[in-house]
Amino acid sequence: MITLEKVRRRAESDAKSHGYFLNPDAESLKNLLEGLQKNEERYGYPSCPCRLASRKFEFDRDIICPCDYRDPDVQEYGYCYCALYVRKDVFEGKTSVLPIPERRPFQKQIRSYAASGEGVAEKPSEATTVVTEKPSKIILKMWYCKQCGYVCFREEPPYVCPICKAKREMFAEITIHSDNHK
């Protein structure tokens, strides 16, 4: 079982490495960290507390905290969708925190309904962590960052390179050619 302290430390170090801060409101912060802890416990991964998870890793990978939408949201609004990660001006109270629109595409949201398994997920088994779900409509591709060489395997390239912070446009798809014509 993951402790709340560990969830907090993980978020803190992630905020630090990106030049962000955690929500300055103690109650909101506690609620968010508890939400992440609960999701990690019940799904096996810390999916976004404010979004509906499908309970299937492959469908939820874009909303595993820190989600794919954090960086563009912090850039545009000053904080992520849940307002766990905030910019300096928000941390200092110069910018207030109001709900922001959902950036996650509808096609991805809708999967949380069709893909969600039967039954209530209050007491999930360890099996929820398996990544071997049928890939159904998900087509994973290999992407590499032209700036630093970071490689990832996912549906779409990330908004921002997690290593060198290059923008999405710097990602190119890697296509593998098999040499079977000989």
Partner: peptide
């Protein structure tokens, strides 16, 4: 709502 969501709370 979502049980863990701060905006829902």
């Amino acid at each position: 709502a979502i049980s863990t969501c701060v905006w829902c709370k």
